[in-house]
Design a protein around this nucleic acid. Sequence first.
RNA 1: GGUCGGUUCGUCUAGGGGUCUAGGACACCGCCCUUUCACGGCGGCGACACGGGUUCAAAUCCCGUACCGACUACCA
Length: 496
Amino acid sequence: MIRVRFAPSPTGYLHIGSARTALFNYLYARHVGGKFLLRIEDTDIARSTDESTRSILEGLAWLGFQPDEEIVFQSNNADKHRAAALKLLEEGKAYRDFTPKAEPTDKNIKETIADRARQNQGVKSMRDNPFRDLSKAESDAKAAAGEPFAIRLKVPVEGKTSFEDGVYGLSERDYAEIEDLVLLRSDGHPLYNLAVVCDDIEMEITDIIRGQDHLTNTHKQILIYEALGKTPPRFAHLPLILAPGGKKLSKRIHGEIVSMTTYRDHGFLAAAFRNFLALLGWSPKTEQEIMTLDELVQSFTLEGIHRNNAIFNFDANNPKRWTDDKAIWMNAEYIRTMLLDELLPFVKAELKSAKLWRDEYDDEDKAWFENTVNLIRERFFTLKDFSEQGRAYFSEDFDFDETAVNKNLKKFPDLKVWLPELATRFESLEDFTHDPIHETVGNFAAEKGAKLGQIMNGARALLTGLAVGPSMLAVFETLGKEKSILRLKSQIAWNL
RNA sequence: GGUCGGUUCGUCUAGGGGUCUAGGACACCGCCCUUUCACGGCGGCGACACGGGUUCAAAUCCCGUACCGACUACCA
């Protein structure tokens, strides 16, 4: 039985890269008929928060990835991790390091590490720790005397680790490049690499699919597996999702754009976003791009995953491009092509949250509601559009777009009397449907010596507040005789 | 600095020695449709990082360079 896990650390909301990692794990598990598990890696007490855990769970739920077994919280296993470290110490595969803990500097931590690595270049061996070969008696004595110590893995002097990565192929690393990593902090807290390995063993994980940033960690973890006498699982590393310019996509620099909840809150359909995410770093190798979850599951293989990083394209300074163009397009594609019945609940929820929902839409006005949604969805990009651009269809209280008013109304002052006049013509219309409306407006335009478009667009501005939208005949019909007349006569837009 | 990885249109990608004058999608531009448009149809722009090899033949294999990224913590 194949068992995979998604293991986020709760130090923020669900990141777009993590979401994709979760997606790929999920697709892989489903594809091979295995299990998809979830583990919260909350061992960094200083940075982990319950709030983050909730946010991550919420994001996963939105995307539709429910774990197949109970969620594992890594912090609950700290005792087991400690025991493993002690066992390795006992067996002589690890040692106590009595070197005093270095005080953290306030400088950028990444830079500090790189600087130190540069300085140590060619000078420091990975095996020159003075406590590495301390006799057991001496080590025990110091420990008994209460001297604080960390426990480090005793990496062999000669040899190399190697594994076959499911995406990157054969990966080898000389022991000389790997430090004697710390397993247990001097305050007794187990560290990441140890915790991960122990938990993956405990959870019987067979395949680890995670970000490429863990590629080099893998060698350290394999060393731990070996020390523990366990066979390592299979590994597959995913290329990263970067920001425009090829830089790391971070919440600190890029803000809410990297958070999954942002997409939900901006009217994205989970199915559309999931589809978009799947195509970032993976390809079905066909020309089909719109794929249902089932289709994704069916065609998902590790071979389709790329080795090069993908860029999540967006422009923070351009509201129209606040997120990746293709993601927006895909959402629009879903909105206008999915089964209407599947879309309706989402529209209902959106209207409810905008206080535009009326219970009649579920009852006597059901047909009207469905037709209207079907009519206006053609040009919409997100669910938000139903309550914003589409507001005039559901409420009398809507705004007039400035360009619509200027371009289609004020530019033709005659319309100020013509449109109310057209409304009067409508009053005598028995059958307020496509053909009679068409005839009435056509005759009216001819009478006035105006172009049909001039009348139609003026009416559009008055009836919908916008310069764009569906065919006006459909709009008249949808809004109905009463509202059409009322809005044509209204002088509000003229006084703006 | 070291180790490792990567490099096909602006972006996501197909391709893995000949079928490549490099295919698709998004974006952009133009035309058509038309009462508007953000729909639809048609078309256009646009890429194999660079330099050496190997080969009859290289986007595809090898080497080097450049650039980008990851790791190099008693973070995860």
